[in-house]
Design a protein around this nucleic acid. Structure first.
Lengths: 338, 338
DNA sequence: TAACATCTTGTTAGCGCTCACAATTAACTC
DNA sequence: GAGTTAATTGTGAGCGCTAACAAGATGTTA
């Protein structure tokens, strides 16, 4: 931190004095305004370098009413998906010249969400990325007029609020289609919570694929995404033996299912095939390695920021984007018979 | 967002007019200054509520030279530990009235670290939490004088920089001690990268425990924390069969080891016992469930903020704190013989 | 009651920056 | 060379807030 002789950080005026120009000209150089002669620009840049000048963002915010900050409202950050989406958001935002402020929800309630939104308003963020995978979030957002662009992860978006999502139904149909192509007729679904956007969408995809193939969609169990709930429900499946294949809502629950099957002496994939969702880095090392649906969460985060920046800087209207997932076949599903 | 009749957000002056006092009195109420009469305070608070006034943080920052923001420099946010520590940091910071700005490192290099620190300086953060588990980070921090309090996670701290850490050596010794108490004599360690603070500390703990028991510490393999590296090194261990127990640096690598042993027909724990580190929520559902060392990452994050806030607000000197880990015994280690 | 301390409130300046506009200079055109 | 346009630079005001000080109100003591 270079300091002026008076001991404080240099400001525009100090640079101006040193370069022999006005503070406004320095401001123009700093902000890359076009109408500055090359010679002047050079002088100013030299002075900036000598003094180690850095623009004061509070002063700038005060007058521009922009904070160069994007707020990320998140929950479940300990989960693979949200954590990786945040990563993509953060990188893309920083590349675009924004700071990223984060507020995570301990519990997902209207009150907590509204509280965090106020927190962001106090900070006068330029936009908000909502990384809260519960359906109810959308309702709260409708009521709470933020006055800044909002991008909701997992939502298809609407006229006022943008969305960026992985095509969950497509992923679910790919997974179920894979099982059907192996000749399975009784395919259970161990879903995530139905009040989660992803949980509901994946269940819907499972149902759609079964219907299209003329198969029954009556084997639905609802878990809570955790390995523990996968284990409990897996024990039920192992006891009932009603299904020859299980499409599990995420990889962690699938781990629990594998554990339950292993304990119960149900062989995977010989007795029952198992498919997960997410493709976490560990999933290839489960016993057996898990067939699953890969999602590019970081790409999802990047696209959020793309949309966001267009809305902030170009005043673009709300829009949405969909990232396609991809089936990764491993040993927890048998190879097609034919 | 309530607005004044002129269409902009209300400011101190608007509240003052409405309450029939000066803007400064309103400021005093907002900032909880003591010398305001109860009657005045009430009037002002009513006006604030009616107008929906919220303090402009940019203006406040400009004059106080405080941003009420704590920067978190993080890497490896997709890992369980860092992600959960961030959670603790975020919650504690918000409770203490701070915003949390995050910068994550794609790659851990001096240049990238310095870049992120400049990013935080531009934002004039009030303090920085460093959540980068590489030893080299400390060196960069020494060179780069930030001018604000810094708390390094994983470090013991020093005179200038505070630290908050889990007692890795204690955890490692507990894990190894557990194996020794079961009668194991040849205990391998599958470590994380040695240039990670945690990797080195856990290896050191392993070595210390073996030495104290008079056992050989020659079976050391270095992995990269991933399940994949655990799998590769696990295959080597399975082929060599030199050890009867393995202390693995984290749970993900342990998963890979279990997979490799399973493929190679090495029974756990009958042939070889396995202990992990971290106690992720999934670890109880591995096959077999993993004995591991639990760390309270959220507590770690909270303590960072405790220290930070004391430094920022009370001008306290740098200090450090240590969180004790805890052994969680499961089926991947056999019960003690006696 | 005068003199003083204490509590409460108001006034003024300025944090560092950008915006709107004015002023200056350079570059063309006829 | 005067008139017009465009490019470049400077001036002044003000964003909303807090700090420092000034001033007024109230209470306390001799």
């Amino acid at each position: 931190m270079t300091k002026t002789s008076s001991g404080r950080l240099p400001r525009l005026e100090d640079v101006a004095l040193r370069a022999g120009v006005s503070h406004q000209t320095v401001s123009r150089v700093v902000n890359n305004h076009p109408n500055v002669s090359a010679a002047t620009r050079e002088k100013v840049e030299a002075a900036i370098a000598e003094l180690g000048y850095r623009r004061n963002s509070a002063a700038r915010s005060l007058v521009t009413r922009r904070s160069q900050t994007i707020g990320v409202l998140a929950s479940e950050l300990s989960q693979y998906g949200p954590a990786h989406t945040l990563l993509g958001v953060e990188q893309a935002a920083r590349d675009a010249g924004y700071f990223v402020s984060i507020a995570s929800l301990r519990t997902v309630s209207s009150e907590a969400i509204a509280d965090s939104l106020r927190h962001f308003m106090d900070q006068s963020v330029d936009g908000i990325v909502v990384l809260v995978p519960h359906s109810q979030t959308l309702n709260v957002l409708e009521e709470f007029r933020t006055g800044v662009p909002v991008v909701v992860v997992g939502s298809t978006g609407n006229a006022e609020v943008s969305g960026a999502m992985v095509d969950q139904q497509m992923g679910a149909e790919a997974a179920v289609g894979h099982l059907i192509s192996q000749g399975h007729q009784r395919i259970a679904h161990l879903s995530g919570p139905m009040d989660w956007i992803d949980g509901a969408a994946r269940a819907e995809g499972w149902r759609a694929a079964l219907r299209r193939a003329g198969l029954a969609d009556d084997l639905l169990l609802e878990g809570d995404w955790s390995a523990g709930s996968g284990y409990e429900l897996g024990r039920r499946l192992a006891a009932e033996r009603s299904a020859t294949a299980v499409f599990v809502g995420n990889d962690q629950m699938a781990l629990g299912v594998l554990r339950a099957f292993n304990e119960a002496g149900v062989a995977v994939p010989d007795d029952v095939s198992v498919v997960g969702f997410d493709d976490q880095p560990e999933s290839g090392y489960f016993s057996p390695p898990l067939t699953t649906v890969r999602q590019d969460f970081e790409e999802l985060g990047r696209r959020c920021i793309d949309i966001m920046v267009r809305e902030i800087e170009d005043g673009a209207a709300a829009s949405s984007t969909v990232v396609p997932p991809e089936l990764v076949a491993r040993e927890s599903t048998s190879r097609p018979a034919a």
